[in-house]
């Protein structure tokens, strides 16, 4: 289970995928190196979530290759190295569950046959402390706010102590206080050497952490390079920089992320 230092953690080459008959990915190349923090940006329907879901195997690919830690995804078994935060507005299921119960399910990849030992319980407590939810450990997830749900989902991904974090819109529907907690949590992980690939709708408070941005449009990679540096409202992808008092012939600077 070792991979060379130069080997990418995630490597997609020419990946295509369809949902129904509609092509959603039309040949995506994407590599994420060890320790990198890569943001996947793009408008709704550009294929960002589908790209993430092909990597974890939730959406089948129709062409191209996907490798995780240098292993073809189909043969990849070391799932404890991967932490995943799916796009969710809630951590709740059809039956009440406590914060601890939900986060514990993320630890299964580190257990044998699902038997929890002392170290596993300690890992659950640590993950809850990382996201500032230790005092809610015994509460039902049904009683949490949107931001707290997201913190629970992130703790569930962190509890296996992964080397790679894959997150699908972790900031969606999250209040400002929780956004800052999440940004701090993520910073600690990145400093510790965790590789991160995350889908974002807007860079927001995570902007300083991001090494590289990959922008998708209509299932193709439009841009792969440094993230757009801007502040405040101007940092939002899709923000059309229009000055009404600017000369009439000036074309607005369109990032092309929202169409």
């Amino acid at each position: 289970m070792t991979s060379g230092p130069s080997e990418p953690v995630i490597a997609l080459r020419g990946v295509t995928a369809e949902l129904g008959a509609r092509p959603v990915l039309r040949g995506i190349d994407l590599t994420v190196g060890r320790g990198e923090v890569v943001a996947l940006l793009g408008a709704n329907g550009s294929g960002k979530s589908t790209a993430i879901r092909t990597i974890i195997g939730q959406v089948p690919v129709s062409g191209g290759t996907i490798e995780l830690f240098g292993t073809p995804r189909r043969a990849f078994r070391a799932w404890a190295r991967v932490g995943y935060v799916p796009q969710r507005t809630t951590a709740a299921g059809g039956v009440p569950a406590t914060v601890t119960e939900v986060v514990s399910s993320g630890r299964l990849s580190r257990t044998r046959f699902g038997v929890f030992r002392r170290a596993d319980r300690a890992a659950v407590r640590r993950a809850l402390e990382l996201v500032g939810m230790a005092d809610r450990a015994r509460d039902s997830v049904n009683a949490l706010s949107g931001g707290q749900h997201q913190r629970v989902l992130i703790a569930r991904a962190l509890v296996a102590e992964p080397e790679l974090l894959i997150m699908d819109e972790p900031m969606a529907g999250v209040d400002l206080a929780s956004q800052e907690v999440l940004a701090r949590t993520l910073r600690e992980q990145v400093v510790a050497g965790t590789t991160v690939l995350l889908v974002l709708h807007e860079l927001g408070p995570l902007e300083p952490l991001i090494d590289r941005a990959v922008v998708l449009r209509d299932g193709c990679v439009l841009h792969d390079g440094p993230p757009p540096h801007a502040v405040g409202q101007h940092a939002l992808p899709g923000h059309d920089h229009v000055h009404p008092h600017a000369p009439a012939d000036t074309e607005p600077v369109r990032t092309g992320l929202l169409s």
């Binding site: 939730q58 404890a80 059809g94 399910s105 993320g106 299964l108 257990t111 699902g114």
Partner: peptide
């Protein structure tokens, strides 16, 4: 016997896949 595994799959199937279940 399989309560933790069944809990994970029934709570969030997509996530359970990434825990290798």
């Amino acid at each position: 016997g399989l309560r933790r595994q069944l809990f994970a799959v029934s709570q969030d199937e997509e996530f359970a896949r990434v825990t290798g279940l």
